[in-house]
Every structure is written in structure tokens, then in C-alpha cells.
Design a protein around this nucleic acid. Structure first.
Lengths: 344, 344
DNA sequence: GCTGCCTTTCAAAGCGCTTTCAAACTGCGG
DNA sequence: CCGCAGTTTGAAAGCGCTTTGAAAGGCAGC
């Protein structure tokens, strides 16, 4: 059933039927009701492609998901982020277009989306230093929101982004451990080229400096945030002549690896060794139930997804509003993985 | 830059330019080259919406992601599945449309996608007993492939699906433990209403029966596959007067919870208690490196995604080919979580 | 009864592409 | 030089919708 058939059925013109369905005022209430009833009865849904060809708006938002060709890693955070964003899209009547590409072709994917006019806006994931995507999207004039911030762009007010206050979160985590008397605090960070990892390190270092603690390179690692990374790094560090008494991890998954190494070494978490992790509050991987297992800096990535979507939709609806930024604060939640530094 | 402008630029008709770009044979090689060069130079990309309106094919595949309103759980497997499928789509020039909806509205989402003609085919996730989506999609005549099988549909050749041989996998896991001398084997399954959980239980039960072992209801659980579920269930079971010496888990995440409870109880995994888990081979949550941590029935969900996509694309390309099924076998990989049953 | 204004409806153009059908051009044998 | 088949190009219709500009209908005021 298409518009033509529906209007023929009703003995009305396509114009009138279209207007009735789209809520335009210049149609008599009686006719509108007739039209709506008939549409419901025949299960009529306008053809999206035709509609967006006519209106010029595609009612879809693009997400490009890079698959790194070397380590084949899919971001674990992605599912929850998408869930949050998707909900917002659905509510606004927007679709979500996903493009999964090898990260070498990422730029092409954006360019293609833009030129094909298949989306009204784009979400940028995992911004990198001097990310070329920003310039690209500005050039083609497609609205976009960044999840995270782009290192290298000084003027943060010049584009839209939603980010967690990573620096503050890790400052708080480090200070919390220092307050407990820990002086040897290890940092198991994410990949150094990621913006969030840099900010987290800055937060960590600034508190160490402030408290007069030395930043020992042997206690700082940076890698892809897997369980085995946490395990191996911790095992190595615990074997040092002067091992750390506390660990800060960038991901719950890594923290699980740390815990495993701690227990392998016959130590008890929360007594012999303290752990704080960042917790993205993933739906399928909760940090314990009522009482969290790990003390953590928690910030829901799902909520971030919703926020990103809302900002982007607002920009599309009203193109005159300028760039928009939101810095989400992480909660420091206390679990069973931290305690006073053991006296030697 | 659109077709009209491009052809005006070249002094050719839209017809010729379109044909040159789409590889039709009736265009002189010299002109084709001219056209291709100009297109590349101007970065021309055909407008997808216009094209699909004209051709009737939308070059997109739909996925509906239900967000359960009660437990708000996002399937952890989803990200990797999408990565696998997305790669296949990208290669074939297809887009992926995601629709995130509360599970109560799931049917509407499918109906809308179908009537709007916004996709050429649909992937069905998490089939349930007597799933209404099958009838719906058959009615509207949209090609679809199910990830998993639909319980309640006897004639498995009547629709397309890709599934892991869950029954066989759990038969093998159970037999492996029985061979090691375990007689009290617990099963921590997924939600009972999921088809895969039912088949896994069948596999488990059939081997118990075959070996003359009693199936103790106290050792069988079914729930959402979280870490804390594994932890709590294991703690309870280990406190039984006659505790299990082995556990089979439906998910790596649950297995981690089991392990935690085992170690909390002062027992050693692989010696005092054996664990086998199903392992979806998620990219961000590997079961150890070279030597797996857990003995597991492994089957890559990412590969399943690719397979589903390939089958669906084939059905779309050639609608005359009938339904298509693939049963993927899981590998039984030996890790450090299993060993002979302890002698009491 | 006519004019003018408001409400309601409609015909038709246009969005950017594909595709059918027709036309133009080429070369070649007669 | 003509006719014909084969090759190459083009004009125009159509995909299903929105939207502009115009027409029709209704009604009050003169």
C-alpha cells in the first residue's frame, strides 16, 4: 500500500492524504480522521526512501565502527553505548546506520556517508590525536558529536563532544589511595594513543606530584585493556623488589586480571593489595550487586550514548544552535577492593 | 555534486553517466574512463536514497536489538556478532540499520521496517518459542535469517538459520567431565526461555542419563548469565552436604563468577573443582592467551555473524534459492580449569 | 446577486537516480 | 551511395513521497 493507492481508495488527492498524515493544519478534521483510520486499517507506512528523497532529510544517524586490522578488537563498551544512543534515536523517529570497516578505511566510510547523504548526522567514536574526521565532517557540513574529546584541538568549544571527566576521576582515585597510606600506586592504563588514557595518566601523575610521591615508570603500563594484560602486568609488578600496594585500572576487565594475579600471589585484595578501577557500568558486566566488588570510578557509558544522541538530534533539529559540550563526572564508589596500606 | 551536474559537466546524458558508473557494457570504453575520472575527481557518490527509490532495493540489512525493559541487559555477544556481520555487509556494499527498541515494541519495529521498505532483509536475534516474528516476516515477504533456531518450529528446513550445535557441545563437555570421574556435575545455564539454553540442558541431561548419573535439580540453575549469578549459585552449591566437583557454565562471564566462588571457598580450580564453560570467543574477553584459562566449548560468535550475513545476502541476491541452514560445531578446547575428580 | 476572504482540496513539479525505448552514429557489403 | 547491423548515446518516464501554487467551495457583507 502506497500513498497513491491509499488516496485513490479514499477518493482524495495525495496532497491531502500526505498533509493529513503529517499533521499539517490546513486539512479538515473530518478528513484527517478518515485518512488516519484508513491508514491504520491498511497498515500504511510511508516509504522512507521516497520521503527522505523528497524532504532531503534521511532520518538516520551514522556510526562508524572501526575494526582494527591488527588486533581485531571490538570495543566492549560499544554495545552499551549503542543501546543508550539507539533508545534516543528510536524515540525521535530516527534510525541508526552502522558501518563496520577496517580502521584503515575509516575515513572513506565517513566520506561516503557524507556524500551519499545517507545520514543526517554522525557520531565519532574513539577520537585520536589530530583526528582527520573532524576536518572532514566540517568540510562536508554534516553535524557531528564526538564521544570523548579530540586531543590536539585546543579550542574545545569549537565542536560538540560528550566526555567523562577522566582526569578528575583518576585524581580522585589516586588521592583516595594516597589517603589510605599507599605510596606505591601502579597505573594500568589503556592504549596511550587514546585521549582518555592520556587524561587519566595526567590525573594520576598530578596527584602523585602533589603528594610528593615519585612516579615510578616500572609501575605504569599502557596497553589494550584485556584481562590477561591485567594479570601479566600485575604478576610482574608484584615480583619487583619494591612492589606496589595499590593498583589503578582503566577497565573492569583489566581489574579482574589484576585480582587474579593478586590472589595467585597468595595476597588478599582489599587487605594486602588495593585496587581501584574505572567502571563503565556495562549492563552485562556489573561490578558486583549491592556492594560493589571493586572500588571504582563509575560513569555509565550507556548514559553517555543517550546524551550524545540527544545533543546530535538537537543540532539537527535546530542547525543554528552552536557546538555543545558535556563533561560527565564519574562517581567514586567504594567497594571491597580497597583498604589501608599494609604496614611492612 | 549530483548526477545531473556531473553529466552536464561532461557534456553527456545522465543515462550514459549512470551506465558508465554502474558498469553496463553498452558504453564505449573511452567514455567510461572519462566518466570514472570525473567522478573520482569530484568525489561523486550517488545519493543512496534516490538510487534505492529507483531500483527498489535499499541496500541495507535490518537488525532489531531489543532492550529488555525489566533487566535492562544488553547482550554482551552482540558487539562481536555485529562486527562479523558488518564486515560482510560492507564488503557487499550493504549498510546495516539498527533499531534499538524496548522488547515490548519489538514486533512493531519489524513491521515498520518491512512496510517502510527501509531494508532488504532482516536478521533475527534471540529467537523465542513460537516467535511471532517468523510469521510476520513471511507475511510481508522480507528475506530473513535467524541467529539460533526457533523452538516450536518443527520443520527446521522451512526457514534460514545459523546456529551452534549447542546440544553436541554440552554433550561433549559433560562427557569430558564424566570421563575424568566427576559424578556430581552442576549446570549453570542461561535463561530457560532461550532456545540455546534448552538445547544445552538436553545435551547435558542425555549424557548424565547415558552414564547412569542422576540429574540433581539442586545442581541445575538457569538465569541471566552474569558474573554474580555464577558466584552466588556456586557458593550455594558448594555449601551443599554433597557438593558438585564440576561445573558447566553457559558463559565465560558466569564461569568467572564460579571461579571466584571456588577460590573464596579455599578450593583450587582444576584440582578440587573442575569448570567447563561455553566460550563465544569474544574479542574483548579472551579465555586466556595461548593456554586457555578455562576448558571450554568454543565457537566464535563473530564468525556466526559473518555466516548469517553471507546467507542473508545470498538470499537477497538470488531470491530463488530456498532456505539455508548451517550448524556450527563448537571446539572443545582444554584449559587449566579441569582435572580428574578428587578422590574423597 | 456579486465581491472578497477564508478554508479545504488538488494538479503538478521536483527530489536524484535507473531504465526503457528510440535515435544517432559507425563501418561495411552490395 | 544506400541499407543494414551493431555500437553508442540520449530523452523521458517512473520510483513514492513532499510541497508549491492554483483552484474550488463556502460564507459574510454589501
Amino acid at each position: 500500500m502506497n500513498l497513491k493507492q491509499l488516496s485513490a481508495n479514499l477518493g482524495l488527492s495525495q496532497t491531502t492524504v500526505s498533509r493529513a498524515l503529517n499533521g499539517y493544519p490546513e486539512v479538515a478534521e473530518a478528513t484527517r480522521k478518515r485518512v488516519l483510520d484508513a491508514a491504520a486499517q491498511h497498515n500504511y507506512r510511508p516509504n522512507t526512501r521516497a520521503r527522505s528523497l523528497a524532504t532531503g532529510r534521511s532520518m538516520a544517524i551514522g556510526h562508524v565502527i572501526p575494526i582494527s586490522t591488527n588486533h581485531e578488537m571490538m570495543n566492549p563498551v560499544f554495545g552499551d553505548f549503542i543501546a543508550g544512543a539507539g533508545e534516543a534515536y528510536a524515540q525521535a523517529g530516527y534510525d541508526m546506520m552502522l558501518s563496520v570497516v577496517p580502521d584503515s578505511d575509516e575515513d572513506i566510510a565517513y566520506r561516503t556517508m557524507a556524500h551519499r547523504h545517507s545520514v543526517d548526522g554522525i557520531v565519532i567514536h574513539g577520537p585520536r590525536t589530530d583526528d582527520p574526521r573532524i576536518a572532514l565532517l566540517r568540510e562536508v557540513g554534516l553535524p557531528f558529536v564526538v564521544h570523548g574529546r579530540v586531543p590536539g584541538i585546543e579550542d574545545e568549544a569549537s565542536y560538540s563532544w560528550i566526555d567523562v571527566n577522566n582526569r578528575r576521576a583518576f585524581e580522585r582515585a589516586t588521592a583516595f589511595l594516597a589517603d589510605l597510606g599507599h605510596t606505591r600506586i601502579a597505573l594500568l592504563n589503556g592504549l596511550e594513543r587514546m585521549d582518555f588514557a592520556q587524561r587519566r595518566r595526567e590525573g594520576y601523575l598530578s596527584v602523585l606530584a602533589e603528594r610528593g610521591l615519585t612516579a615510578d615508570p616500572a609501575l605504569m603500563r599502557t596497553d589494550e585493556m584485556t584481562e590477561s594484560y591485567g594479570h601479566l602486568a600485575t604478576r610482574t609488578m608484584l615480583a619487583l623488589p619494591n612492589p606496589p600496594s595499590a593498583f589503578i585500572a582503566s577497565s573492569l576487565i583489566t581489574a579482574i586480571g589484576i585480582r587474579r594475579a593478586v590472589e595467585d600471589a597468595g595476597l588478599e585484595m582489599g587487605r594486602d593489595v588495593s585496587i581501584i578501577t574505572h567502571d563503565d557500568d556495562l549492563s552485562y558486566f556489573k561490578n558486583g550487586a549491592e556492594v560493589p566488588l571493586f572500588t571504582a570510578t563509575r560513569s555509565s557509558v550507556r548514559l553517555a550514548g543517550t546524551k550524545v544522541a540527544e545533543v546530535l538530534l538537537a543540532m539537527i533539529t535546530d542547525p543554528t544552535i552552536g557546538p555543545n559540550q558535556h563533561l560527565l563526572e564519574a562517581d567514586l564508589i567504594i567497594g571491597r577492593s580497597t583498604g589501608p596500606a599494609p604496614t611492612r
